[in-house]
Amino acid sequence: MNKKSSQTLISQKYDRKGLLSEIWQRIRTNPGAVLGMIVLCILMLTMLYGIFFISYEQVTKMNPLQRFKPPSAEHWFGTDEMGRDLFLRVIYGLRYSYSLAIGAVAMAFVIGTFFGSLAGFFGGRVDTIIMRTTDIMSSVPTILLGMVIVSVLGSSTLNLLLAIGITASPMFVRMSRASVLTVRGNEYVEAAQAIGMSNFRIVFTQALPNALSPLIVTLTSRMGTAILEIASLSFIGFGIKVPLPELGALVSSGRNFINPAPHITIFPGLFIVLTTFSFAMLGDGLRDALDPRLKK
């Protein structure tokens, strides 16, 4: 068994393209994952459209004559309390949620897998220190840390990134550590040591690539969580602040006018749901594709 698994791992290592295309083959047959991916692509394109074709003036210019207009052909999502076009604001605001989520999760991924691999590979005191720190970090809820960081350091994008990135990293530490631990004893790692490869190179060229698939799954589903967290922080006023049209902030500004104009609340929220849902679908699909054990 052990021998067999190490053999497959070797083939994964030296046949990366094959592995990726195999994953792709399996994802393709999962309708949920495909749907998630398509929706995400459309959302990303929409965000790019917002970046290139919608100006800051367009989304912040007030128009007192057009306040609280319900959705119409002219204003697809209606207008808000200042008469601004909600559709444009939502499209414009996608960039905050998405770039923050991608940035924070990427940061968590890099930091998490780096320290996790170190802990798993070296064991001993390094492991203890890293894992204890991880335990401590994971016992701070994101919302609380976000509130503290933002209230103290101000609500900059970087601070939000820090708050969400830090609280997302423990999961990556644990996963990469576990993965490295399972491959550490395998022959090909010993072989790499035998030919005099440095420890660092072994971790990052031999051990870690084989731990990638569970990490990719976590990465994907973590993206959805990050988007929710960003929106929640913005909603309670500790994220990106109005007039910048971040999705959570838009919902927050809509709540005061929910009775005459529920659309101000509904549409930005829908985009949050759509994004998170797509990430969750893709994550579930990836998990089924990468981990045949969990397949139904």
């Binding site: 959805g224 929106a231 929640s232 709540r255 929220g269 949050i272 749901v273 759509l274 998170t276």
Partner: peptide, 22 residues
């Protein structure tokens, strides 16, 4: 359930608030 975990709680709350309170 998947839609459920994708919904921000504040948004769900506001929708319920709108529907059953206003």
């Amino acid at each position: 359930a998947l839609i459920g975990i994708s919904m921000p709680s504040f948004w769900t709350g506001l929708l319920l608030l709108f529907a059953f309170s206003y």
